[in-house]
């Protein structure tokens, strides 16, 4: 049998179940029957539900542990700092939810409200939703295959009582798999501003991140820009910089030049970031004057500018 791998044409495409790459796929029967081609009615329901959300931002990276969740959390904190803005953070990492801890909400549970699940609030204008809030103990593992994870993500988008929002930020797991396909598909009838791609400087990370960028291009998800995290560490005692994750292939800077993407900024390694995350506090409040906090603020500013420019673009073209 030939195992040279090629792509799934997409369960909703005309070719679903019929191409050579469908051979041997356990879903082939289902796909070939046409059952998967009809659009999921949830997509329209989600579109209606999220019509009161002004901006939607996905945080992505092909690589694990580069700081997606840390960045998502701090983006949410920074945006919610403006008390007139309503911000929500949705964690779609079903198997490794980090957001409850990073936001200081470990042990919280979601509540059922009249119109669905109500999210957990950090501040009045900062709502959070994660599968972590549905687990009963820190030992609980979510050992789910793809379809079940997709069902959960659908529920998060359709059945959570988000209310009117200025920003919805979505933290994702590493890779390009079910969760990513689902979130993009379920949001397809709404307007997504774009994705922020997180990487670290070394090639081992960049090689995966380039794939994530291809993924965005494939599913026509605009890229707001790239953040290089963990770039350099300044020794607190002698002030020399060490490249702990060396940019051997030119780091995010070279990649962005090559792929013509905006580099939103670089965040250095700072032990106080890891500590703030462990303690569930905002690093931006804990150490506001640090170089890392300044980097975060400037990146958040670029993202806000991008979102508001898109609004004016659309108003002028509509």
């Amino acid at each position: 049998m030939c195992l040279i791998l090629s792509d799934c044409p997409g369960t909703q495409s005309e070719q679903a179940g019929k191409t050579s790459s469908c051979q041997g796929c356990p879903n082939q029967k289902n796909c070939a029957s046409g059952a998967t081609k009809a659009p999921d009615p949830a997509i329209a329901e989600i579109g209606a539900k999220l019509s009161t959300v002004k901006h939607k931002i996905l945080v992505l990276s092909g690589k694990g542990g580069v700081g997606k969740s840390t960045f998502s959390a701090h983006l949410a904190h920074a945006l919610a700092n403006d008390g007139t803005k309503e911000v929500a953070l949705l964690d779609v990492d079903i198997c490794g939810p980090s957001i409850p801890r990073i936001m200081g909400l470990e042990g919280e549970q979601v509540h059922q409200s009249g119109s669905g699940w109500s999210p957990v609030y950090v501040e009045e204008n900062l709502a959070v939703m994660s599968i972590g809030f549905l687990l009963s103990s820190p030992d609980d593992a979510v050992i789910w295959r793809g379809p079940k994870k997709n069902g959960m993500i659908k529920q998060f988008l359709r059945d959570v009582d988000w209310g009117d929002l200025d920003y919805l930020i979505v933290d994702t797991p590493p890779g390009t798999s079910d969760e990513h396909l689902s979130i993009v598909q379920y949001l397809s009838s709404t307007h997504v501003d774009g994705a922020v791609i997180i990487t670290t400087p070394q090639e081992v990370a960049l090689q995966d991140v380039r794939k994530e960028i291809r993924f965005c291009q494939k599913v026509k998800l605009p890229i707001i820009g790239v953040v290089e995290n963990m770039s350099g560490f300044v020794c607190p005692s002698c002030k020399n910089t060490s490249q702990i994750f060396p940019p051997t292939s030119g780091g995010a800077e070279r990649m962005c030049e090559n792929l013509k993407l905006p580099l939103l900024g670089k965040v250095p390694l700072d032990p106080r970031i890891a500590r703030s995350c462990d303690e569930g506090k905002s690093f931006l409040n804990e150490v506001p004057d640090s170089p890392a906090a300044k980097a975060y603020h400037s990146i958040v500013q670029s993202i806000q500018d991008y979102c508001s420019n898109r609004v004016t673009d659309e108003q002028s073209t509509d």
């Binding site: 090629s6 799934c8 356990p26 793809g146 798999s177 990513h180």
Partner: peptide, 18 residues
């Protein structure tokens, strides 16, 4: 076994399992 190393492997679970 991938055709293009920069290409994103965008597969749903069932296909990965197979």
């Amino acid at each position: 076994l991938l055709e293009d190393p920069d290409e994103a492997v965008v597969w749903r679970g069932p296909k990965k399992n197979a």
